[in-house]
């Protein structure tokens, strides 16, 4: 066994990996000492919290919400009388809800009016953001509803035309 292979077996990766990681740790320590100089505990909490926020807080929240939405749209839910050939996809709710939640996630301090000095600093009114977000959310769900209706009409078009033809022929037959 040559040296590089032996190293890989003991370390778990190539020597280049070790060198690069050590260089990055040294740089992180150089900058990290400066980052932690003021409120050490506060910065450390923010840093580790930022690493875990998505994985341990946001992901469980949106995964459970998504499961609940999928349950509503599952086969067998609703009337299920066989007259509807296709069931609407959960994505008609998922996509607008995702975009709306994303806008809130980024702009919540303004939307929820958490910035007390906003107007004093900028000279602009602070009370418009919640309304804007709600109207954007309404527009997103309305657009999704419109897509659902248009696709529904499109998909059922041949069936409805056949139905109309059949009724016409039936009337003719009566005359």
């Amino acid at each position: 066994m040559n040296g590089a292979l032996a190293f890989r077996r003991r370390y778990g990766a190539s020597p280049l990996h070790l060198l690069l990681v050590l260089a990055s740790f040294a740089l992180a320590a150089y900058a990290g000492v400066r980052l932690l100089k003021g409120d050490t505990l506060g910065v450390a909490l923010w840093f580790v919290g930022a690493a875990l926020l998505h994985d341990l807080v946001l992901l469980p929240l949106y995964a459970v919400t998504d499961r609940a939405a999928q349950y509503l749209f599952r086969k067998g839910a609703g009337a299920g009388d066989g007259s509807r050939p296709t069931r609407p996809s959960v994505n008609y709710v998922r996509v607008p809800a995702f975009v709306s939640a994303l806008l809130l996630l980024v702009w919540w301090p303004l939307i929820l009016r958490r910035v007390g000095h906003y107007t004093a600093a900028t000279g602009l009114p602070a009370d418009v953001f919640l309304g804007h977000w709600l109207l954007i959310t309404a527009a997103l769900f309305a657009a999704s509803a419109a897509t659902l209706v248009v696709r529904g009409l499109h998909a059922s078009g041949p069936r409805r035309r056949a139905e109309r033809r059949r009724r016409r022929e039936a009337r003719k037959a009566v005359k």
Binding site: A31, L35, G38, V115
Partner: peptide
Amino acid sequence: QLHYIFPGSFYVLHFYGAWVFIG
């Protein structure tokens, strides 16, 4: 968004944080 709830000066945190991250 002028929401200064982070633990320190924005310039200090964002600048040194970037160098910790980039390695």
